[in-house]
């Protein structure tokens, strides 16, 4: 069923492709370390070279898989601001859609690590009284993140319904 994860009304807004770039860089960095360790092991311990070779092969395979995953995952994220609720969707294999009424938001966080800042993106996280809500939107452009936070805070106050 295709419309199980369609927005209740309106269109999904997609997140910035820089999210995939940042994740690919992180994956490449981790895989690079494993690759170097594998090569060094293979050179230093020629008797058990297969360990080093396996590590290096895993690193290369992992990078390839991670590369594809980052792209697909980035394209799967979406959010929609409806009249009364914010909708967030994500995931390719394990798909999820969550709808948060504006009046239920307790507070809104904006986070950006050094790498994310370098690429001009940020993560907006919404908190309700429930931990199950777990609504974070990564990979928003910095100006969009600020706009969304201000808009959500404003709407939260307007719709405020307490705990």
């Amino acid at each position: 069923m295709d419309d199980l994860f369609a927005p209740v009304s309106g269109q999904w807004q997609r997140v910035a492709p820089q999210l995939a770039t940042v994740r690919r860089l992180l994956i490449a960095a981790c895989a690079g370390i494993v690759l170097v360790v594998g090569i060094v092991l293979a050179i230093l311990l020629p008797d058990v070279a297969w360990i080093g070779v396996t590590l290096a092969a895993l690193a290369i395979l992992g990078t390839g898989w991670g590369w594809a995953w980052a792209g697909r995952n980035q394209r799967s994220w979406g959010y929609a601001e409806n009249d009364d609720d914010l909708l967030v969707t994500r995931g390719v294999m394990f798909r999820r859609l969550v709808a948060i009424p504006y009046g239920r938001m307790q507070f809104v966080d904006v986070q950006a690590g050094p790498l994310e800042r370098a690429f001009g993106i940020a993560t907006v996280t919404l908190h309700t009284a429930s931990t199950e809500t777990a609504a974070d939107i990564p990979g928003l452009r910095a100006d969009e993140a600020t706009r969304l936070r201000n808009r959500l805070t404003e709407l939260g106050e307007a719709h405020g319904a307490g705990v």
């Binding site: 994860f5 394990f94 999820r96 859609l97 969550v98 709808a99 009424p101 239920r104 309700t128 809500t133």
Partner: peptide
């Protein structure tokens, strides 16, 4: 209903 925090739907492969 007046205490509903948020609503979600999820599906695995």
């Amino acid at each position: 209903h007046r205490k509903t925090q948020s609503v979600g739907v999820r599906q695995g492969p």
